[in-house]
Design a binder for these strands. Sequence first.
DNA 1: ATTTACTATATTGCAATACATAATAGTATG
DNA 2: CATACTATTATGTATTGCAATATAGTAAAT
Lengths: 101, 101
Amino acid sequence: MNTQFKKGVLDLCVLNQLVREDRYGYELTELISKELEVTAGTLYLILKRIKDDGYVTTYLQESDSGPARKYYHLTEKGRDYLHQQKAEWLEFLEKAGKLLA
Amino acid sequence: MNTQFKKGVLDLCVLNQLVREDRYGYELTELISKELEVTAGTLYLILKRIKDDGYVTTYLQESDSGPARKYYHLTEKGRDYLHQQKAEWLEFLEKAGKLLA
DNA sequence: ATTTACTATATTGCAATACATAATAGTATG
DNA sequence: CATACTATTATGTATTGCAATATAGTAAAT
């Protein structure tokens, strides 16, 4: 799959998985990978980025099947950003669609 | 507009403008800019790339209102690439759509 | 007439950003 | 001990942004 297509959209895919519930990194990797072929390294970079940007907060929680999990929680700021970026994405699709028609 | 969204798609937008007729760089800049806000520098890099890749050929032609224009012509290889990449783009949109729903 | 400025056209260099790949490391379990 | 689960980091690559340069006509100003 064309690597470039994902640029900018992966962020949104990750954030969107956090709207309903908190999730941990490994879980997100599996979720996203089901559709988009993304490796753990890439996912964790994204997670670091959106945390640095204040879109998510994190907390550790014990697991009964391995190391502690780091959960990611969407902040208000993250929610706003997601909505705004989703709108921008749709707008972009419309414009690009005209050029690709 | 989010810069990243364009990654990989601009190529296709440019190639798609060459399906029906040959066009020159400046003309393409204006065409694409109507929808997507792209600067001349970016456009010319794309043109260089798709030429190096053999997706287009070029030829010069006098203009009566400025310097000679460099026209870009879509090759058979370019046409194939465009079709294949457009399909991949649509497939990507479908998968990303699931994650963004 | 000559200079000036502006539009049309093409090109290039450097910086910034995001994804790929691969390697490392720690914990629990069978 | 091997394996699955979980997290992290370093290095490389590709694409776009921005800004600067260059050249040829055309129109305007002096």
